[in-house]
Simulated assay, not measured.
Amino acid sequence: MLSTDLHLHFEIFANGLHGDPVPYIGLRDAMLELLNFFEKDMLKLSRYIQIPREDALQSMKLEMIELFKMNNEC
């Protein structure tokens, strides 16, 4: 998959090798870390979405989780 838009790349670099972080921190923990990392950005962006703020935040979080799961399955 080629990404031409803004995206997040999350990986582990150890002993000169790149790797998937999921085996080290677990899928659930990885998703929670990413959601926490982007919380402030999502709050800022929610001001520009023309739906209630909580709905906008939930939509962004759900989309991030779905993308993360989809990328993990590839």
Rank of each mutant, 00 (worst) to 15 (best):
S59G: 01
R28S: 15
K40Y: 02
M70N: 07
K61N: 14
H7W: 10
I51N: 08
L32V: 07
H9P: 01
H7S: 06
D29K: 06
P52Y: 05
F37T: 09
D20F: 08
S3Y: 12
L35D: 08
R47S: 14
H9S: 14
E54P: 00
T4Y: 09
E63K: 11
H9M: 01
F13T: 10
E39C: 01
R47W: 03
N36C: 05
H7E: 05
L34K: 03
S3E: 05
N72T: 06
L17W: 11
Y48P: 01
M1L: 12
S3Q: 10
F68V: 08
L32W: 08
I49S: 04
M60F: 15
K40V: 09
L45M: 14
L32S: 07
L8P: 00
G16A: 04
L62V: 13
N15Y: 01
M64G: 02
E63L: 08
I49P: 01
I65E: 10
L62A: 12
F37Y: 12
F68P: 01
E33M: 06
A14S: 11
K69W: 01
P23V: 05
S3T: 09
A30F: 06
L67D: 15
E63T: 07
I49L: 04
I25T: 10
F13C: 07
I49K: 05
S59W: 00
M64A: 12
M70E: 14
I12D: 02
D41N: 13
E54L: 13
L35Y: 02
E33V: 10
Y48K: 07
E33Q: 12
M70K: 14
K44R: 13
R53S: 07
D41Q: 07
R47T: 09
S59K: 10
L57P: 03
Q50M: 08
M42K: 02
I51A: 03
F13Y: 12
S59E: 13
E63F: 06
I51D: 03
A14I: 12
